[in-house]
């Protein structure tokens, strides 16, 4: 169970964790709202890698892992659509997509 075709589970998890951290860094540090969105997508891909790897190694007999991953795809698509719509609406108002320029509201 711990190794399929000579390949253990751990490398998948390490890659997924790396992908997640890169995505999180991108989402928190980038100056462009579209890049932030790309960071979130990267994090969602890391989750899917996790889910599929866990499904194959831990629970290959139930379809739960596959279904979970499919739902994550759908949510990712919906989230990207809504995110881009909001970015366009911000761009029309402010002529910029830099999150740091979004400071109309002050204490």
């Amino acid at each position: 169970m711990n190794s399929i075709n000579g390949l253990p589970l751990a490398p998948f998890l390490v890659v997924a964790a790396g992908l997640f951290v890169i995505g999180l860094y991108g989402a928190l540090a980038r100056k462009n709202a579209i890049a932030v969105l790309m960071g979130v997508e990267l994090m969602l891909n890391a989750v899917n890698l996790n889910l599929i790897a866990f499904w194959r190694y831990v629970a290959p007999n139930s379809s739960a892992g596959l279904a979970f991953a499919a739902f994550v795809f759908i949510v990712a698509a919906a989230e990207a659509a809504v995110g881009l719509a909001l970015i366009i609406s911000v761009y029309r108002n402010l002529r910029s997509v830099d999150p740091e320029k979004l400071d109309q509201m002050k204490m």
Binding site: A27, V40, G83, L94
Partner: peptide, 19 residues
């Protein structure tokens, strides 16, 4: 959509919420 504050609120809520 035509108000700066609302557009800003939407995108801030989205970014923090999505992350």
């Amino acid at each position: 959509r035509d108000t700066k504050l609302s557009a800003e609120a939407g995108i801030k809520y989205f970014v923090f919420g999505a992350v």
